[in-house]
Amino acid sequence: MVPITYYLLLAAALFCMGMFGVLVRTNALVVFMCVELMLNAANLTFLAFARMHGDGIGHVSAFFVIAVAAAEAAIGLAIVIAVFRSRGTVNVDDIRTMKH
């Protein structure tokens, strides 16, 4: 039997890799992919704790996270398309109209 700690550590590593990508990469699409990576790490944590306690609530939460991730991807990609149409770039360094 694999200890749950291993799963939790894998989820932590995945989350931190996603966070690294969000903070370091400049392409907005890659930033979105890294957000998906972080959401998956959260899912893995839910499922690991569900297995640890032997109850199915964690699975329900994982379903909801997947649905929210789908909504987030749809809206986020629509925003990326809109920004690309008005600016001609998806580089997050070049999009700073609201930065003051």
Partner: peptide
């Protein structure tokens, strides 16, 4: 996380 006492149920 390595201090979480964790064995699968």
């Amino acid at each position: 996380l390595s201090r979480v006492p964790a064995q699968p149920a």
